[in-house]
Amino acid sequence: MGVAEAVALDDATLVARSREGDVRAYEHLVRRYQGPMYRLALRIVGGSGDAEDVVQDVFLTAWRRLGQLHDDGAFLGWLYRSTTNQCLNVLRKRKPHADTDLDEHESPAPRTRPEREVEMNAQLDALRAALRGLTPQQRACWVLREVHGRSYDEIAEAIGTTQQAVRGRLARARAQLAEAMAPWR
């Protein structure tokens, strides 16, 4: 299977081939989704090292469990659930206040940037800091919904709760984040 062919194949086909033991087909799935899963993990756990560990665990576990995935087209939803779960596990094991390895924002604003951009960077920093102040479950709900656009149903399944509980956590998260953004209004 050439690269161009694999790129054109849909998830279901690559999943079916992977299940038959086609490691190359699986590598294309990893390449396709490592970015979004990494960014999801980074936004929930905060540190790039932990986020990469999460992604590695998720894709290895997915490989092991391909035989249990009954709907080949459901692979991406499965990845979102698995990544969210793994992030919450990492946060559960992490000692309270051990945020020394958390990444600071990626790009400090050079002085030459336009004022508007500097202000946006400051707002983004404030948002990231406020996200760290949420509970892991609130943060997971908010990131999945507002940044990754997942459905309430998917989020409920990912964190093992009801849609109503997801809406409640989202509401609390949004209220807390809005308060943190108040200085810029």
Binding site: E52, V55, L127, V147, M181, R185
Partner: peptide
């Protein structure tokens, strides 16, 4: 007003396409 600021910052956060290290795959 706070929610509008939050909405704009959220869009910016979503645009951040941080990539994992090249050795992850």
């Amino acid at each position: 007003e706070s929610l509008l600021v939050l909405r704009a910052a959220t869009a910016e956060l979503a645009r951040d396409q941080a990539e994992p290290s090249s050795g992850l795959v």
